[in-house]
Design a protein around this nucleic acid. Structure first.
Lengths: 196, 196
DNA sequence: ATTTTTCTTAACATTTTTGTCTAACAAAAA
DNA sequence: TTTTTGTTAGACAAAAATGTTAAGAAAAAT
């Protein structure tokens, strides 16, 4: 089977991801995606058959990507503090590049139903939660239900980037200044999560 | 000029808000909104003229509501700790009822442009940030740029509720259990924000 | 080289969504 | 009452978005 493979399929998918995950344009039409990718809209149907299937493909990959990142970070063979620091690094970098990936996922789930995520792997998270509990016993992090610890961590990582358009106005900072603020977040978050 | 005012206009707007802000159905069509409101779709055009104007009205009110909440909370005449506790109460309650209001705002800004929010009031926030700075001097909260303190606060408040559909699966909790977790957040957040 | 397959596009068709028009009806005002 | 005004619904129209077909170009295989 010959495959010309000019990379158009990947290119379309990546362009769509950029619009959804990076630019936060959750209402993007097939025409807008095709235009942004610099291809005829038919190409989009040639590779994905329908808009819904393109969305489904993107959803699955985003879910897969999230699962894998969680997996790798949570089950890494590292001391708890290092592991958490790595989670911050990895997720913060990801949020800077794709701030609306989770928003996209949640929006799709809300419109199509939560059965879309029955394949999510919760074991790696569970093991991290156990480690957090142990750590609380040692006293290096304040005692609370481990899920709260994890929600706190992800909240501090993610929310400011999702709210960027509003925060920029509210704090009167420009794009560059906001970016600098985000670079400072790692230190801030570590300070919040661990007793210094 | 007689105004029959059967409440239909308000009812349509509230239904639309419920779909957008509470259910997170950001792609809702006029037909879906009309159906949910139990009115003919024409009523929607009669009162709002077009879909875009309905969206614009909802956007403005949501923005207004956010501004006002910020204003009232941030400039209340209270000691800093009490004030912060009140912010948590008010915003947590709001997030439980309308978890996707901010998401809606940001999505609209991303599609229509950030000039939509040039009327946002940043003075009340500024005064709260100054108070936070004073408080850091006193040592009751850890030293950091005040904006980080505020972003931390809002993150801890908001993000878990936005991610609810994913977190329920990831933590294997049902709706009731998740709701209970959210009720616990106030204490958790206070513990995170203030040195105990 | 030519045949086959993959890829890309333009033109067209269908479906979905939005918007308009008119008639019907009710309630208030004249 | 009748006239006017506000409100609702049905039918229709227009626009927007999605989907299909057919045909040609480019690459791979024979």
């Amino acid at each position: 089977m010959p495959l010309k493979n000019t990379g158009t399929e990947q290119h379309i998918k990546e362009t769509a991801k950029r619009m959804f995950f990076t630019e936060g344009k959750l209402h993007a039409t097939t025409q807008e995606i095709a235009d942004a990718a610099g291809v005829n809209r038919t190409a989009l149907h040639y590779y994905f058959r329908s808009r819904d299937l393109l969305i489904a493909a993107i959803f699955q990959e985003a879910m897969q990507d999230l699962s894998q990142r969680l997996n790798e970070c949570m089950t890494a063979d590292q001391p708890f503090r290092d592991k958490t620091e790595n989670i911050i690094d990895v997720f913060l970098r990801h949020m800077i590049a794709f701030p609306y990936q989770e928003t996209f996922l949640v929006t799709e789930i809300n419109t199509l139903g939560s059965r879309l995520i029955n394949n999510i792997q919760s074991d790696p998270v569970k093991s991290y939660l156990l480690e957090a509990e142990t750590e609380m016993g040692k006293g290096s992090i304040p005692p609370m239900k481990p899920v709260h610890f994890l929600m706190n961590l992800f909240s501090l990582l993610s929310y400011p980037l999702i709210m960027a358009p509003i925060y920029k106005k509210l704090f009167k900072v420009n794009g560059k200044e906001f970016k600098e603020l985000m670079e400072e977040r790692k230190g801030v978050i570590m300070g919040m999560m661990f007793k210094e």
